[in-house]
Amino acid sequence: MSKGTLSTTTAKGAAVPAGYAGIHSGIVELLDAARQAAARSVNALMTASYWEIGRRIVEAEQQGKRRAGYGEQLIERLSSDLTGRFGRGFGVNNLENMRRFFLAYPRSVISQTLSGKLRNEVASEKSQAVSGKLSLSDLAHAFTLPWSAYVRLLSVKDDHARQFYEAEALRGGWSVRQLDRQIGSQFYERTALSKNKTAMLVKGAVPKPEDAVTPDDAIKDPYVLEFLDLKDEYSESDLEQALIHRLQDFLLELGEGFTFVGRQRRLRIDQTWYRVDLLFFHRRLRCLVIIDLKLGALTHADVGQMHLYCNYAKEHWTFHDENPPVGLILCADKGHALARYALEGLPSKVMAANYRTVLPDAELLQKELENTRRLLESHATIRPKTRKR
């Protein structure tokens, strides 16, 4: 080996060129920065588009204001047609958010914001754009926070409080998690009542470890996925992903009428996002089967959440000729497995009894869950040893 070409050897025996660590870390930083920039760009254009949609809805409502219920009919029709054309993201609630967004940030506010941002730029054309028709590119400059942050801000009824949270989020670079926590803890009211407001603002700007947003988090934001009409099949952990995959195959192999519908299916209730791990349709029962996996011990909150899922699915995912959905909670706590059906919401005890007869036995599911977890954990302990050979 000649001088200047020193290399090291990995556990697999492959030679690594000298200086590789620096090249690798530099590329990682480059890709992270690029993905963050891409997420910011998508969020800005998405927010600008939603503001413009809100403006058009409001102006259409004003033109038809003499007709009772015109606004509701307009949004419902738009929701149906846009969903059919563009997929997710255009439900009635989200269109209502766009309408409220425009009302909270009217053209006068946006023009003032843009004028301030472009004040130091030598761009007469941009100045004219601010005073005239606003393009999406112009609007994107006005919205610095992601759409999910503006959705959270819309829940703040008091205008002064909303402006305070927006200003602090911009000043402190708050993530949506941090913004949500500050609003939930009434940070505005506590700061207003504090004798040392400066100390409160400094303390409030300090993020917690769980507030950190990685490029992956930004890309996987549910609103971004909806806007780009991308599938959302992200799992919380490698173990959860492996368990879900094995259980999906297991249920299909049972041959009892299960038809796979989707994984990691998201749903939004008010401004909160939820995710169900597996969604099946049972041909014999003619109903959706919602499956949620918990890696910890089963709690009353998990049961209540499943009933929430079933109620949502009954209203939004179930066709008129189908039976009410049923929920299945699988608890994969280490050393203990539990399978529990949520049947209390069914219209009659007869239907619940029929469901129990047709659906796989809970003990069978628990046994499969235990076996799968043991198998996965044994593979996890064996794999590092094989790499050292």
Rank of each mutant, 00 (worst) to 15 (best):
S2R: 13
S2K: 10
T8E: 04
T9W: 07
K12F: 04
K12V: 06
V16S: 08
P17F: 07
A21V: 07
L30R: 11
A33G: 13
R35K: 11
Q36F: 12
Q36Y: 03
A39L: 04
A39E: 02
N43W: 03
A44T: 08
L45K: 04
G54F: 05
R56M: 10
V58K: 03
A60F: 05
A60Y: 02
R66G: 13
R66L: 08
G69R: 03
Q73K: 11
L78G: 01
D81S: 11
R85F: 11
G89C: 11
F90D: 05
V92C: 02
V92Y: 12
L95K: 02
N97E: 11
N97M: 11
M98S: 06
R100W: 00
Y105W: 15
S108K: 10
S115K: 11
G116V: 05
A123T: 02
E125C: 00
K126T: 02
L134E: 07
L136R: 11
L136P: 00
D138V: 01
L139C: 07
P146Y: 12
P146F: 10
S148V: 06
V151Y: 01
R152Q: 13
L154V: 10
V156L: 09
V156Y: 05
D158I: 10
Q163Y: 00
Y165P: 03
Y165L: 09
A167C: 05
A169S: 15
L170S: 13
L170Q: 14
W174R: 04
S175M: 07
R177W: 01
D180F: 00
R181M: 09
G184A: 14
G184H: 03
E189R: 12
R190S: 12
A192Y: 01
L193W: 00
S194F: 06
K197L: 07
A199N: 06
G204D: 10
A205T: 03
V206H: 07
P209H: 04
V213M: 12
D216E: 14
P222Q: 09
E226L: 01
L228P: 09
D229Y: 00
S235I: 00
E236L: 01
D238I: 04
L243Q: 09
L243S: 03
R246K: 15
L251V: 05
L254Q: 13
L254K: 07
E256Y: 04
V261D: 06
Q264D: 06
R266V: 02
R266S: 08
D270T: 06
Y274W: 06
F280R: 02
R283V: 14
R284K: 08
I291A: 05
L295H: 00
L295F: 00
G296D: 09
A297L: 08
A297M: 09
L298K: 08
A301D: 15
D302F: 02
G304M: 04
M306L: 15
M306S: 08
L308C: 13
Y309V: 09
Y309H: 09
Y312N: 03
Y312V: 04
Y312H: 13
K314M: 08
H316V: 14
F319S: 15
F319T: 13
D321P: 02
P324W: 12
G327K: 05
L330F: 08
L330K: 02
A332S: 14
D333G: 01
G335C: 12
Y341C: 07
A342L: 15
L346C: 12
L346P: 15
P347I: 07
V350M: 08
V350K: 14
A352T: 06
P360D: 10
D361E: 15
L364W: 06
L375R: 10
S378F: 07
S378H: 10
P384R: 03
K388V: 12
K388I: 05
